[in-house]
Design a protein around this nucleic acid. Structure first.
Ligand SMILES: Nc1ccn([C@H]2C[C@H](O)[C@@H](COP(=O)(O)OP(=O)(O)OP(=O)(O)O)O2)c(=O)n1
Ligand SMILES: [Mg+2]
Length: 1202
DNA sequence: ATCCTCCCCTAC
DNA sequence: TAAGGTAGGGGAGGAT
């Protein structure tokens, strides 16, 4: 039952729901009052404990040690890594704790657990991150213990000392006698640098916190904390052993940007975030005043800056050079992410040092684990999943309210929603051990920003409100932050601490919620039921009072301030908490809603980010919620789509009918890394990719699922982007590709075999033909999950028990010994399943292509150590045993699924092998097309992607003669489902033109969109089920080969073949002249080549087709003017053409505009004389020009003559 | 209509 | 010197 190595857990604890009313007053004070600096020692400690004191319970990722030797013992591995650190530091410390194996129990006062751990290691001790084999532990460090734990440890005669034993020893430079620090000896030894040793109000709370300290790790392994049965409100919460964030991948946010438009009405509109800034400034000023009385302030008075909106900014890279390179950027530099300063010499030196790069980028063998152990975003994501599971396991399914009717989203629903969120969480957590920094501008980031910080690209994770007042915010670089706030103090990440605090936080909230949704590690949404018949005694707002009580409870248990927003739906609760911040609670009642909402900026609404905000502003001139109200819903739907349009229309009115999201089954598992990806050769890429595969599969196993489909995501340096992007080791501007394939284990079943995943991923990657040096990001996603052989997707598998099942008081799940899980299920007489995956994990049916791969590559799975290790890692941590799935299991006989007989391991691969046909595979240009051009497919496929593009583009340009003439096919009623239906549905239903009111331009056109077209068009509207012999001939496919395929495969080939024919047909037309394309445009974007079957023909629409459509469109709509929906669609299309990341076909866009102008001249007369609808047409053209103009500027930085 | 695939977008 | 991850909502376009 070896406890999941690398496992940690959200601690279990006991909590009573006593209130802490007496402390309410203190809570509402900004935490700026700092009455001392007595915690000197803690400060020093912090400085000493350089970098790596992550929680770092062994990484789960298995890697190779030097020389390929595997370290099976995680503990050793950890020690090894810490040793590395120590060497890095180059400081040899006295080995005070040599020979000691020290476990730290729970949260420690005065110094964080990671800090302690680091100190121990730095001084020769072994830090034991988990308590699986108690015999190996020589000492236990603890500040507080629950009665039961205390008894247990005492009985077992453990040496339990307070943290001061460590810190004092370090200070003294010698190993002091632990007995002088025994926790059992001195009842409660006041720690010198107490956690709550500041300000009396908080100090008081601190006392309580000490008393109700949570329990911890060890407990989860079976030791059941006895419940000091006490207050009625007491509730026991069991811990959930959850896999540690461990090793894994990620992706990210932005760098710099430029072309961000400045909001209109900046003066009059105050967004919530801006309000936050304002408040912070006020607080700062206030604090300033006070401080000047008590103590001189080290920093200059904060200048009343123009509040930089904290609102959602563009994610940087997308396509705004941001910094220097943009010709017209200099003006609005207010928003950028990176520092002005150039890379420092040092930085450049590193980047140019092959040795350094080999050790610190993806090329290094242990990169993955190191990277994930430090990635904040990885931790954030992992924690979220863990918490969702924890909540699902603790929250009885009965918690799910049964509503008589669906929610209306209005006050009528009678719900009370709390949105609880820590204020600047990471910073607040860090400040609990650095009280001397309270009231200052503080930020959490990796860089220990010293002098070099001016050019640091390290991202700010969170910052104090004092820092926000100066414009600092999450996501910007340290360098940039220092420009705005030179006095900014940085503190390191302390992931363990955050997790520990979160445990206490969730525990408290669970005790108050009737229904709870884990939003993130520091954020919860919950539904609350008040003791309804609130006796007439109580005050005016019992909900608000409860919120304050909860806030007090949280503060006392964690030392961190949280804010709470209350309202009758999720939207409003979230907005309320934003208004409440910092350190307060706010009840947004329905009477306040309109006046509260209207002045907000649209992107204050949850769900509206940079992109949506831009759409609203550009297309509807909407910037505030008030503006949003004035727009017709149909317009919103046109711009944002059906659901989004409706949703935000309702949001603007304060209406939100969403239920809390509780316990839905996970639908995918993925791992990605888009940072420090720098490879020199294929071997490195392959090794990395296989590791990534193993990691992904481990995560999959932790969920107890297997998968049927794999998606590989690749980021490749954009050809125009510099080798070294502005952000240190960042991915820079990239082209992104994905490609997917099915995966299968024995018998075609879903699988969780790392080897299969690695193999398939590697095959897909090789097929992409990407130069290793150009790679900037890699990710693997597993989908189509199955648990116990049934799809996890409730929609597919009807009757699926989606809800988790959990008895209210659940004893700490005795960590299931490795395998019990599976046996647990075997519910009913599971009907004889066809292909019960034979329990031979090493036996795999690899997809065909895999078998074709050069055998040079040795299979990782040959190394048993890997399997052993990953197993030990995963199984234990996957305690999904009894928890779920014990619910009423549906009939084991699935309705549709199951088609084992017909199962083809991999269609794509299969297709590939079928030499003759080679229909457009997942990502390639059909060979037949190549042959058509006289290009040898063999050679073509061997070329790098971008070269392929060029070849193809060239071929297409030269091979065909100019278009003969344009037809006049004026069809009627040709309706584009998409465009039309959308239109019909709402907007102009008043069209009065009964039948098929022509409108809608169908940009998805393909020759077939004009079915009645000239006979020349190859395959008329497809009629036969399968490709006809004629069609096969046209395609140059072998007729007999075709017939030899199964009918389903033939069907697929048929549709693909027909698409191909369409394209060939359209290719016979050449766009007349092409405008000169610049270097960037010359390289046909990946997107273009990458185009694959189905759903993407829009990308390939040929000029000829567009011209035709345009012509029809103008003719048909001449008298009514162009429908907005069509204009929108056309605009989107043209912008896509211009975009350098997508079509990269500026010429086409220009051509379309010219053609349109020509048509208008013909149909509507000269622009100058146009009137009525003609006028409308000309205006529409002008607007479209201007949009394209903008797009060109964004893409090329040039003002082009459109 | 309703499904599926391939994206984009958002949030922490 | 830095650690730009991840899951789910949903839109567009195509197949059924
Ligand atoms: N871009 C981001 C956003 C958040 N976080 C981390 C750090 C934050 O402390 C934590 C919680 O995020 P919040 O959005 O709740 O932000 P804060 O808690 O820091 O501030 P606020 O007071 O606005 O809630 O997540 C991060 O690392 N990077
Ligand atoms: Mg927060």
């Amino acid at each position: 039952m070896a406890q999941p190595s690398g496992l940690d857990s959200f601690d279990a604890f006991l909590v009573s729901d006593d209130g802490f009313e007496e402390s309410l007053l203190a809570l509402d004070e900004p935490p700026s009052v700092n009455l001392n600096a007595l915690a000197s020692s803690s400060k020093r400690v912090a400085e000493e404990s350089k970098q790596d004191y992550r929680d770092d319970a062994a990484y789960e990722i298995t890697g190779f040690g030097e020389g390929g030797k595997y370290l099976r013992n995680k503990r050793k591995k950890l020690a090894h890594q810490r040793q590395d650190l120590l060497e890095q530091d180059g400081v040899q410390r006295p080995q005070l704790f040599k020979g000691d194996s020290i476990y730290i129990n729970g949260y420690t006062e005065g110094i964080t657990q990671p800090e302690l751990a680091n100190l121990i290691v730095l001084h020769g001790g072994e830090y034991v991150p988990y308590l699986d084999a108690l015999g190996l532990v020589t000492h236990i460090i603890a500040s507080t213990l629950t009665p039961s734990k205390r008894k247990e440890l005492q009985d077992k005669k453990y040496k339990v000392a307070t943290p001061s034993w460590i810190t004092d020893s370090v200070k003294a430079g010698r190993r002091l006698d632990w007995r002088d620090y025994s926790l059992f000896a001195a009842k409660v030894r006041p720690e010198p640098e107490g956690l709550f040793a500041f300000d009396d109000g908080l100090g008081r709370l601190g006392t309580q916190s000490a008393q109700k300290s949570l329990f911890s790790m060890g407990v989860a392994r079976g030791a059941v904390p006895s419940t000091p049965a006490k207050a009625q409100g007491q509730q026991k919460v069991s811990a959930m052993a959850t896999a540690k964030p461990s090793t894994s991948a990620m992706k990210a946010a932005g760098e710099s940007n430029a072309a961000v438009k400045i909001k209109d009405n900046t003066e009059t509109i105050e967004s919530l975030s801006e309000r936050g800034v304002r408040l912070a400034q006020d607080a700062l000023r206030a604090a300033e005043t006070k401080r000047s009385i008590f103590q001189p302030r080290p920093n200059p008075a904060p200048r009343p800056l123009t509040p930089t909106s904290l609102a959602k900014d563009r994610p940087s890279e997308p396509r705004s050079p941001a910094t220097t390179d943009s010709p017209h950027a200099p003006t609005k530099q207010s928003r950028k992410w990176l520092p002005d300063a150039d890379k420092s010499e040092k930085t450049l030196a590193l980047l140019n040092d092959p040795g350094w790069m080999a050790k610190h980028t993806s090329a290094a063998p242990d990169f993955l684990q190191k990277y994930f152990s430090q990635s904040r975003l990885h931790h954030l994501s992992t924690w979220k999943e863990e918490l969702k599971e924890l909540v699902a396991s603790l929250q009885p399914s009965s918690a799910q309210p049964i509503r008589s009717k669906k929610l209306s989203g209005t006050p009528k629903d009678g719900r009370i929603i709390f949105h609880v969120d820590f204020d600047c969480f990471f910073v607040s957590a860090g400040l609990t051990t650095r009280p001397e920094l309270r009231g200052k501008a503080v930020a959490v980031c990796h860089s220990r920003g010293g002098e070099e910080a001016a050019s640091s690209t390290s991202e700010i994770s969170s910052c104090s409100y004092e820092a926000r007042a100066k414009g600092v915010k999450s996501g910007i670089s340290l360098g940039r932050a220092r420009e705005m706030c030179p006095e900014l103090v940085t503190i390191p990440f302390e992931f363990d601490l955050y997790k520990s605090i979160a445990s206490r936080f969730y525990e408290i909230l669970l005790s108050h919620a009737s229904l709870l949704q884990a939003v993130s590690i520091d954020e919860v949404l919950m539904e609350v039921k008040l003791p309804s018949p609130s006796s007439p005694t109580s005050s005016s707002d019992p909900a608000l009072e409860l919120a304050h009580r909860i806030r007090a409870e949280i503060l006392s248990a964690t030392g961190c301030p949280a804010s709470i927003g209350i309202s009758h739906n999720i939207l409003l609760a979230r907005l309320a908490s934003r208004k409440a911040k910092p350190a307060n609670a706010f009840h947004l009642t329905s009477d306040l809603v309109p006046s509260f909402l209207n002045p907000l900026s649209v992107d204050d609404l949850p769900g509206i980010g940079w992109s949506t905000r831009s759409k609203l502003e550009d297309e509807l001139r909407v910037t505030t919620v008030g503006d949003l109200l004035k727009v017709r819903q149909s317009e919103l739907v046109r711009v944002l789509g059906e659901k989004q349009g409706k949703k935000f229309a309702e949001f603007a009115r304060g209406v939100d009918d969403r239920e809390l999201d509780v316990g839905k089954a996970r639908q995918s598992v993925s791992t990605e890394v888009n940072y420090a990806i720098r490879f020199e050769n294929e071997e490195q890429v392959e090794r990395f990719l296989r590791q990534l595969g193993e990691e992904t599969v481990k995560r999959l196993r932790d969920t107890g699922c297997k998968a049927r489909s794999l998606n590989l995501k690749i980021m490749q340096r954009h050809p125009d982007s510099p080798l070294d992007p502005p952000k240190f080791l960042g991915h820079g501007h990239c082209l992104t590709q994905t490609s997917s394939d099915r995966i299968a284990g024995p018998g075609g079943s879903a699988t969780d075999d790392g080897t299969v995943v690695g193999e398939v991923a590697w095959t897909l990657l090789r097929r992409m033909k990407i130069e290793p040096r150009e790679l900037r990001g890699i990710g693997i996603q597993l989908q189509k999950l199955e648990k116990d052989g049934r799809s996890v997707d409730a929609v597919r598998e009807k009757g699926q028990s989606t809800l988790s099942f959990a008895a209210a008081p659940r004893p700490p799940p005795p960590p299931p010994p490795a395998k019990p899980s599976k046996s647990t299920e075997r519910t009913r007489p599971s009907p004889p399943r066809e292909h019960e995956p034979s329990p031979s994990p090493l036996e795999t049916i690899l997809p065909p292509p895999a078998q074709q791969l050069p055998s040079t590559r040795r299979s990782l799975r040959k190394d048993p150590s890997i399997i052993i290790l990953s197993d030990s890692n995963s199984d234990s941590s996957s305690p999904p045993p009894a928890k779920k799935s014990s619910a009423p299991i549906v009939k084991p006989f699935s309705i549709k699924k199951e088609r084992p007989s017909e199962y083809i391991p991999s269609l794509f691969n299969r297709r590939k092998r079928a030499a003759p046909p080679t229909p457009p595979s997942t990502q390639q240009v059909p060979d037949s097309e190549l042959i058509h051009y006289g290009i040898d497919p063999e050679i073509y496929h061997a070329l790098p992607r971008d070269v392929q593009s060029e070849q193809l583009a060239t071929a297409r340009k030269s091979k065909f003669a100019p278009k003969p003439e344009k037809r006049q096919t004026t069809l009627k009623g040709r309706s584009s489902k998409a465009a039309l239906s959308k239109e019909r549905s709402k907007s102009k239903s008043k069209s009065t033109t009964p039948p098929p009111p022509p409108s809608a331009i169908d940009l998805t056109i393909s020759p077939s969109s004009s079915p009645a077209g000239p006979p020349l068009r190859p395959p008329p509207a497809p009629i036969s089920t399968f490709l006809t012999d004629d069609e096969l001939n046209l395609l140059d496919w072998d007729i007999f080969d075709f017939r030899s395929f199964s009918s389903s495969f033939r069907k697929q080939l048929t549709s693909e073949g027909r698409e191909q024919l369409k394209q060939q047909a359209s290719l016979t037309v050449k766009s007349h002249r092409r405008a000169p394309r610049d270097a960037g445009a010359q390289r046909a974007g990946l997107r273009e080549v990458e185009v694959r079957h189905s759903a993407r023909f829009m990308h390939r629409v040929e000029l000829e087709d567009i011209r035709d459509v345009l012509e029809e469109w103008v003719q048909e709509m001449k008298d009514q003017g162009p429908p907005d929906s069509d204009l929108t669609k056309l605009a989107k299309y043209l912008e896509k053409c211009v975009s350098r990341d997508k079509e990269c076909d500026l010429a086409k866009a220009m051509d379309v505009l010219e053609w349109w102008e020509y048509l208008l001249l013909e149909e509507c007369g000269r622009e100058a004389e146009a009137e009525g609808s003609a006028r409308v047409w000309w205006d529409a053209l002008a607007r479209m020009r201007s949009r394209v103009q903008d797009a060109v500027r964004v893409a090329y930085g040039t003002t082009l003559l459109v």
